[in-house]
Design a protein around this nucleic acid. Structure first.
Length: 544
DNA sequence: GTAGGGTTAG
């Protein structure tokens, strides 16, 4: 009898692991109807299934059964409940179960730490970790991955270092979390060191770790290394291929992305919605309209994947960037769902750069009805109205922004030179070399002007004279960072440009000229993708 | 022999 109970619990666990939680719960219900004896093993397995679904009602029913059978002293079972509540209902329920535990062990505490991180209670989670004397790898992993998911990347790396100092041995989960952290903040130096550790321990054979390494190198701007990782992998899955495709897409390397996609299909790997998203994204940033349509049709007809909003956004972006604004508009009209703020912002951006007043006004009005949360959308629209000379509309947009409590985040840029990070804000003069930087930039601008650079001062909204506008353009964080990079002549320049694409456009115009003058290659990254400049030309070609 | 920490997009 006991043996059968064990195998039934296993069956539920297996179904859950395969993502068949619904079936797992149904199986449990059938078992109940036959009057089978309920054990803590069975309840623990079914609770886990509820957490994965998530199934609130089923989860609460399981909790009732736990109490009814007096199993609430079983730590393992109660741990499953903590995890289930933190995934299905809320932190209060999870905390109640944790507080009522007669005895806590490492795993129960780790589950609680993860639960707190899930609700962004970062300090509470850290506090619990610090007051707990008994820790294992899982405790450290919970903290590192929890910090990573709460945008505390540097702190996550700090805890990883502390973990090593305290002599705790790492495992695959640690490496997986830490590689992803490096990918998020494009920390190439750390990433390479950690990848070295991965190889040393033989963890790269574990597929998710290999995939994370591909992603990390791609996000750090090293597509050659990403490809090397990919080729070295014995087994590859759809995520390995997708990571490579997405990497190429972000670098504006559309042809490589398409070649990879075709090779993947040829190998018999079935692409998923993210693969298609990455491939379409690559097409849109390389201006490959025909190929984009081919991929989109392939997704819908050959693989029967129903497009989600992101796919539609990619298609509208693809068509609009290429100047096919009317085609993009009719595509949007035919969509079975209403476009969201992101999609409209992408469309509006192209309407503005192609100066299509009629469509921009139309799309702009739709966008404002939607209450976008991104300040960039309002800035885009207000700048557009200013260019079109419609000052009343400018005021309207600004007022809306104010009423909705949307604040424009201050854009900043950082550049890493010899392992030291320098960050800049617009007009920033706090850097010790700021005098040299501005002087250097001034010289570059003069040189740029002599070979045809026209500063786009129409983007400056303040009512000041032309010279001041040019100075303001010069004082943007990206340019300061680039100039510092050029003054110091580091071997590698990596520039992160955060938010504010409007500034980026102008910045890149200038960056292009700088690289032309200096005869060097510059890799810049904005919030979503990389731009390679060589001889004044950006790899995504048609957009600058 | 059950439980926690998990790779691609956004």
């Amino acid at each position: 009898m006991l043996h059968r109970s064990f195998s039934y619990a296993r069956r539920i666990t297996c179904l859950t692991n395969e993502g068949q939680s619904r079936h797992a719960i149904t199986f449990f219900h059938q078992l109940q109807k036959t009057g089978f004896k309920i054990t803590p093993f069975l309840l623990s397995a079914v609770t886990r299934a509820c957490g994965q679904l998530p199934g609130v009602i089923e989860g609460k029913q399981a909790h009732c059964m736990v109490l009814k059978h007096g199993f609430n002293v079983d730590v393992v079972l109660m741990t499953s409940l903590i995890d289930m509540y933190s995934k299905c209902t809320g932190i209060q329920d999870a905390r109640r179960v944790f507080d009522e535990l007669p005895e806590r062990d490492i795993v129960a505490t780790n589950s609680m730490i993860s639960a707190l991180f899930r609700y962004h209670l970062t300090m509470d989670a850290i506090k619990l970790f610090n007051i707990t004397l008994q820790r294992d790898v899982g405790s450290w992993n919970s903290v590192i991955s929890g910090l990573a998911h709460n945008s505390k990347s540097k702190m996550a790396l700090f805890y990883f270092e502390r973990m090593k100092v305290e002599g705790v041995s790492v495992d695959v989960m640690t490496m997986l979390s830490v590689i992803s952290v490096c990918a998020d903040i494009a920390a190439l130096v750390n990433g390479k060191q950690i990848h070295g550790l991965v190889i040393k321990y033989g963890f790269e054979l574990y597929l998710p770790v290999g995939n994370a390494a591909i992603d990390m190198y791609a996000k750090c701007g090293c597509m050659e290394d990403a490809l090397k990782c990919f080729l070295n992998m014995g087994i590859k899955n759809v995520i390995s291929w997708t990571s490579l495709i997405v990497g190429y897409g972000k670098h504006g390397l559309g042809v490589e992305a398409l070649r990879t996609f075709d090779a993947m299909v040829k190998e018999g790997i079935v692409p998923n919605k993210i693969t298609f998203l990455g491939t379409l994204y690559a097409c849109s940033h390389a201006g490959l309209v025909q190929e984009g349509w081919r991929i989109y049709n392939c997704m819908v007809h050959k693989y029967s994947i129903t497009p989600i909003m992101e796919h539609y956004t990619c298609m509208v972006d693809l068509l609009a960037r290429a100047g096919c604004l009317n085609e993009a508009y009719s595509f949007m009209e035919k969509m079975p769902v209403k476009p969201d703020a992101r999609l409209l912002t992408a469309f509006l951006s192209s309407c503005c750069s192609h100066m299509n007043v009629k469509l921009a006004t139309n799309v702009g009005e739709k966008l404002l009805e939607l209450e976008p949360e991104d300040a960039g959308a309002y800035m885009l629209l207000s700048n557009f109205y200013a260019l079109a000379g419609d000052l009343q509309s400018v005021a309207k947009v600004r007022r809306l922004m104010l009423n909705r409590g949307i604040k424009k985040e201050k854009a900043y840029t950082w550049i890493e030179i010899d392992k030291k990070v320098h960050s800049f804000e617009s007009g920033d003069r706090s850097h010790p070399l700021s005098k040299e930087i501005y002087c250097y930039l001034q010289n570059l601008v003069e040189k740029s002007k002599s070979i045809g650079y026209v500063p786009n001062t129409s983007m400056i909204m303040q009512n000041v004279d032309e010279n001041t506008k040019e100075e303001m353009l010069l004082g943007h964080s990206e340019k300061l960072a680039i100039a510092l990079g050029l003054i110091r002549t580091p071997s590698c320049i990596r520039i992160m440009i955060v938010k504010n694409l409007r500034v980026c456009v102008d910045c890149h115009q200038l960056t292009g000229f700088i690289s032309k003058i200096e005869g060097r290659e510059i890799v810049a990254r904005d919030s979503s993708r990389f731009h390679h400049f060589k001889d004044g030309v950006c790899s995504c070609g048609n957009h600058w």
